[in-house]
């Protein structure tokens, strides 16, 4: 199981995500923005971590979505690779047009960092196999621009149980129709160890591992 964590300039959850993937048993590499020869060949999973890529100075994720490394990310996903975008990574996926909708400033205009209650709406994606459908879980959020605005009918994977940021239909995470791309605002990597307050997030990484193992067995 080989995973790459993309490091954009301004990413700041790259090391946290690396740590959580390691704990789950992945071989993990960083994919740095300054590495010209970067390739995702041979990787099973690419993660776009949280942070403030390019300072989020224009719109969150906008600049990152249009640079070289992102073209390779897109190619990887179009070939069926598993692509996970967390927080700023989710915003990048939106800006890349890989997931439908947009993420705008929170309803109250303020950054929010807290644990929130969620429900797993779809446990058939490679990222959510280990959950039960309708399972109630707790994950941290930390974002200023997490208000999901719906375009069309997205494949909703996670939903907040209460209105936390004004998202349409309390949507917290969506997947591509094909299911190999997931974006979510909450941080599963921050809920991967009991000492940090919970382990529900770890199940996202365990799901991916389970999926990859079963796929490997099929092959």
């Amino acid at each position: 199981m080989k995973a790459a964590v993309v490091v954009y300039p301004g990413s700041n959850c790259d090391r946290d995500t690396y740590h959580a993937l390691k704990l789950t048993g992945f071989d993990v590499d960083y994919a740095y923005f300054f590495d010209q020869d970067l390739s995702f060949e041979g990787y099973d999973l690419v993660v776009l971590p949280g942070g403030f890529s390019y300072g989020d100075y224009l719109r969150p994720g906008a600049v990152a979505a249009r640079e070289n490394i992102s073209r390779k990310v897109k190619e990887f996903a179009e070939n069926g690779g598993l692509l996970l975008g967390i927080c700023n990574g989710f915003q990048v996926l939106m800006e890349m047009g890989l997931l439908p909708g947009a993420l705008l400033q929170n309803e109250k205009g303020k950054f929010i960092c807290r644990w929130v209650d969620l429900v797993v709406e779809d446990n058939t994606t490679p990222f959510t196999l280990a959950f039960k459908k309708g399972e109630k879980i707790r994950l941290p959020i930390a974002h200023g621009f997490g208000r999901y605005v719906k375009v069309g009918e997205p494949r909703v994977v996670f939903r907040y149980r209460e209105n936390v940021n004004g998202s349409d239909e309390k949507i917290a995470g969506v997947a591509s129709e094909s299911g190999n791309i997931l974006g979510l605002m909450p941080h599963p990597e921050r809920a991967s160890e009991e000492i940090l307050g919970g382990e529900d997030g770890r199940k996202v990484f365990l799901s991916i591992a389970e999926y990859l193992e079963s796929r490997g067995a099929e092959k």
Binding site: D16, H19, I112, C113, A142, E189, R190, I195, L196, G197
Partner: peptide, 27 residues
Amino acid sequence: VYEQYDHMVGTDTVIPPGFGSAVMRVK
């Protein structure tokens, strides 16, 4: 106030704000 601060990034915050002292982890 502290809800506006990201107090969890780094995944080393063991006792978060709001309880007097914070406790941090080295991995």
